[in-house]
Design a protein around this nucleic acid. Structure first.
Lengths: 262, 262
DNA sequence: CGTGTTTTTGAATCATATCAACGCAGGTGG
DNA sequence: CCACCTGCGTTGATATGATTCAAAAACACG
């Protein structure tokens, strides 16, 4: 039936680029790779392990924006790794309203399908164009078995993901709109910083206000006003997709953000 | 300094009961034990495994209401298992306001301390008087190693807990007060049913309206009105701690509750 | 029985949602 | 090159769900 994974195949080089020897795209070689950077943050990796991660580049495909990567109630037999772009876990009501449960940033992954034969309780969709690896179950299990250092890093990544989920419950549960936004920005700064995609309080945020609103449990209109408030108070500035945090301290204390669980 | 685990020692029998031979309390023998029932729901256990669970009864102690079982930012070196009573994971703001992140019902446990040496990002506290086992790290690890069936069940329990956390994000994020309450009641019915503490849409709910409000991100006043609305519409009745769901179908569709992830 | 906790009530206020509309930028096709 | 469209951000007006404060009523407990 539906292709379920409509792929925009950009893996082969554009004709003009064919003269230079083919290296993996910067996101997919082991050093510049968000996945490797992120895992290193949890557990130092050996040379062999970094090489093994680089091998995953072969599974990477380009995926357009707003494409479902995993449908709810489906048993996925692949692990999903985001190499670039933003995706999200989400649930929908019959009304069509949706709640984003987690952002998947470069270096994040979802292995629930591959590791346990359970149908997922939520869906995953790209929020921007992405480069995503779909690693078949056997290859993924093989990777974990061969490289215990990676397995450990992934366990810790899972702990971090659980902690983030709890943080979101608290965020939506007991903070005001502005505070929620502040907290989310702190989180994004920290997570993007960990993969080298934020520096000096600045980063590219390729999300729409609707994407943010759906993560924070706010209406898009209110989200807009919340962001205006943060700008008016000189806490952030944004030009296009580029976001700059002018007053990180104030932002953190507004959100009562505690760094550290990564 | 603080005892950190103020124990009301009720383990020894009351004087009058001393004539009958001492059996473990119904919550702590293997068959009536909520832990065993719950784990069986995830993976069938062997006789030896049920016996091993029964051994844990030795670690069980009575704990009064509103006692901290684990403090935030502490590295716990024990696994925590609730045998009876309700406890909760929660976070607090400096304002004192708190958000409950998850209820721990009989048969639930927290092994983050024992398994990984990480400080917890939240606190755990009893909401009612409880019977709680604190299992030392080594004993816990030993149990998992000796009984792979238990380890598997616990892995699945962890998946279920993650799914519940995501459900809570959605619940607080995109449902109204009444809908949130409805959803929580559905969840409690399902979870208590799994350990044999709910039947026919009825169960004992030893929580105050404040406890419920803090889980749903509502004020206690609003929580009260929400419950009144559910009663007025003939969906529930409650007498004291006893709750009866009169219209389970309506409750579920109000909450758009999907059973199954347990 | 009296004391502390929990539930319930009312009234005022606030935060956020909803509805509807507009502007602007980028992209497309004639 | 212009007309059109679409997606996103922005506004204002209005509606409402939820909070807050304060206090009374109902319970539970020793």
């Amino acid at each position: 039936m539906e292709t379920m994974f409509p792929i925009i195949e950009m893996t082969s080089e554009p004709p003009g680029a064919a003269r230079v020897p083919r290296y993996p795209a910067p996101e997919e070689n082991a050093t510049g790779c968000a996945l490797a950077r992120r895992l290193e943050g949890f557990n130092p990796l050996s040379e062999a392990e970094r090489a093994a991660l680089a091998q995953l580049g072969g599974y990477v495909r380009s995926v357009a924006r707003h494409v479902a990567l995993v449908d709810q109630d489906r048993v996925a037999d692949h692990a999903l790794i985001v190499f670039s772009g933003f995706a999200a876990r989400h649930k929908r009501r019959t009304s069509g309203r949706r709640q984003i449960l987690a952002y998947l940033l470069p270096g994040d992954l979802c292995d629930r399908g591959a590791l346990h034969g359970y149908p997922l309780d939520h869906a995953i969709e790209t929020l921007t164009p992405c480069r995503v690896a779909r690693v078949p179950r056997v290859a993924y299990l093989d990777l974990l078995e061969r490289h215990p250092g990676i397995a450990i890093a992934l366990q810790r990544a899972r702990l971090a993901e659980e902690a983030t989920a709890r943080e979101w419950i608290a965020n939506i549960g007991f903070r005001s709109g502005v505070e929620r936004a502040a907290h989310l920005l702190c989180e994004l700064l920290e997570r993007l910083g960990a993969i080298g995609q934020a520096s000096d309080g600045q980063f590219e945020l390729p999300l729409t206000q609707v994407d943010l609103a759906e993560a924070l449990g706010l209406s898009s209109v209110h989200m807009n006003r919340v962001l205006q408030a943060l700008r008016r108070d000189g806490i952030i500035v944004s030009q296009g997709r580029h976001l700059r945090i002018l007053a990180p301290r104030r932002l953190r204390q507004l959100a009562e953000f505690e760094a550290g669980y990564l």
